[in-house]
Design a binder for these strands. Structure first.
Lengths: 337, 337
DNA sequence: TTGTAGGCGTTATCAA
DNA sequence: TTGATAACGCCTACAA
């Protein structure tokens, strides 16, 4: 079924059908209705490829997610869902590309085959070849996260450094003198994953500023890793009375290890950090944490991308989110004071 | 950048470039290399829309997932990841459409705008308007799950009825006389979600067959719901000594409620069901459960879809997965015997 | 071994 | 108010 067939049956020309559909030219009410009847009857919809070819845009955006095999964190999942939602509201389709490595056919197709009008690039590393690739291919894109040299690209990011620093200050205010940072996995850190590095920076600086003792550990993004990681801290560093974490997937494991060590939160031990609201509220007791509004982030990223697509001369924009820390009940005064 | 420009710079005709790229016609080594050099230099790749228009296919498949707002279960997430993976291996792109309702613009675009060559439709309900829609639009598709009348469509599904029945028999063999089924949410059941209904059917029949006492409850897909659900069972039905569940997201909550009631698994209480391996192994103690290989399902679904796309006359195919129940350590003899 | 030309389904310009 | 027609970029049958 194509526009010519509709035109034939309605007894008009193809252009009239096109204009009746787009509204870019006046069409008499009578013919408009006749055309609409035929369209309804035959369930016609314009061929997307032909339209894309003619208009030079696909009405599709690419969403580059971390590669399959690694499970998305809940925060990332919320983000993906909110991108889908925002895109749907703008009548944009979303093409998913799971790309981690540099030479990835799926990513190359998206970038250079004009399959999409723009790209949202998740999980950016401090040095990221994909960013360079998108820039040289002149594909509009928005980064979720930022590289080490972020000024010449548009991005949305969470201020992990600032948030973890706040957590440290909060704990120090409560009298804790020995605290630990439970970071993301060693693999991610080694790959130059920004949040891992920036959280560590914020932690180190804040700990130094307050003159307290801080150690940091990497921890896999899963319950079992969280449990063994927390257990190791309890065993090898008995002085530690509080942890801050950006590893939400490890939280249930952290909780389990504390329970097994008969540590009551927050009486014996304090826990805080950065997490999706969902995780914070599922912790027992509810976690004092910076609630990242991943939902909001997705919508903002789509907005920025749409802007960049429609006017390619827009200067780079940066959105550094610093959500407030919700005081719940997982932090308390340092024990023994 | 288009094929004409490449041809011009290489000093050949457009068709020669096209043939050099596709290999469908012999091209002399010298010109082939000259063309390749230009292509490399200019980083050319064929325009996907033009190719799709000419060839009548998009090399893209649609993946219709449950609507945003509801979090995907881990099993669903694994499935999505494996579809992405299988599609990438076949050099297919994946267009994501979060569509639950019947009149959904995103779904309609996918179905009828020729945006994709075929569709994988997740979370099918017993009566599902989307199935009818795809059939009448003659879009090749594979269902994940099946309707009440599944014979005339191709699908891949998990045999929840059979698996839950097996769980019941396993528990009955261990001497349990009062067991409960923790099902998916009441909303899903009300919407006619197949697994919820079929699990209940399998449960009811097996319980009757063994002459034991069974109750079933619906439970939200989250930790908090799992906890309150399990607690209610313990309080109101003290006879119950075991549960079977298909609600993996509720498992941590189930565990928490049991711990708080000082129930030791499997000494005082047995737990079993159907879950992604990931969840089963994270349960304490590890869950005796049917490990659904969502990863495998995705690959199979893509295979079936590719077959259906390439030969539209293929008869409907049905793949009912019945994974084995992995005996771990969350089930034991009924207490007090 | 290579070139020419037509058409895929749309939109938009130019005429009427 | 409407119609004819020329692109958009690619592929491929037909010619040479």
């Amino acid at each position: 079924m194509n526009i010519g067939e509709i035109a034939r049956r309605a007894g008009v020309s193809r252009s009239t059908v096109s204009y009746a559909l787009s509204g870019k030219r006046a069409v008499s009410e009578a013919t408009r209705r006749r055309i609409q009847e035929v369209i309804d009857e035959l369930d016609y919809r314009p061929n997307a490829a032909a339209r894309a070819l003619k208009e030079g845009r696909t009405r599709t955006i690419g969403l580059v997610i971390p590669p399959a095999g690694r499970r998305l964190t809940d925060m990332q999942l919320d983000f993906v869902a909110s991108v889908m939602d925002a895109a749907a509201r703008a009548d944009l389709d979303v093409l998913l590309s799971p790309s981690g490595g540099d030479h990835d056919r799926s990513f190359e197709r998206v970038v250079t085959g004009r399959r999409v009008d723009g790209v949202i690039l998740m999980e950016i590393r401090l040095e990221d070849a994909r960013v360079t690739r998108l820039q040289q291919a002149a594909v509009p894109f928005v980064g979720i996260g930022r590289t080490a040299e972020p000024d010449d690209m548009t991005w949305v990011d969470v201020d992990y450094a600032g948030l973890i620093a706040r957590c440290v200050h909060h704990l120090a205010d409560l009298g804790h003198r020995h605290i630990a940072l439970i970071n993301r996995s060693a693999e991610l850190a080694a790959a130059g994953y920004g949040p891992a590095h920036r959280a560590l920076t914020g932690f180190t600086e804040a700990v130094a500023e307050r003159g307290i003792d801080g150690t940091d550990v990497c921890c896999g993004d899963d319950i079992v890793s969280g449990e063994s990681c927390m257990r190791r801290i309890l065993e090898t560093q008995p002085d530690v009375t509080a942890v801050a974490t950006i590893n939400e997937a490890a939280l249930p494991g952290i909780q389990r290890a504390l329970e097994q060590a008969d540590m009551v939160v927050p009486r014996d031990f304090s826990v805080t950090g950065v997490a999706a609201q969902h995780w914070a509220e599922n912790f027992r007791p509810p976690l004092t944490a910076a609630d990242v509004l991943a939902t909001d982030m997705g919508a903002r990223a789509v907005e920025l991308l749409i802007e960049k697509i429609s006017r390619s001369d827009t200067p780079p924009r940066h959105l550094l989110l610093t959500p407030a820390i919700s005081l719940r009940s997982s932090t308390g005064p340092a024990p023994g004071r």
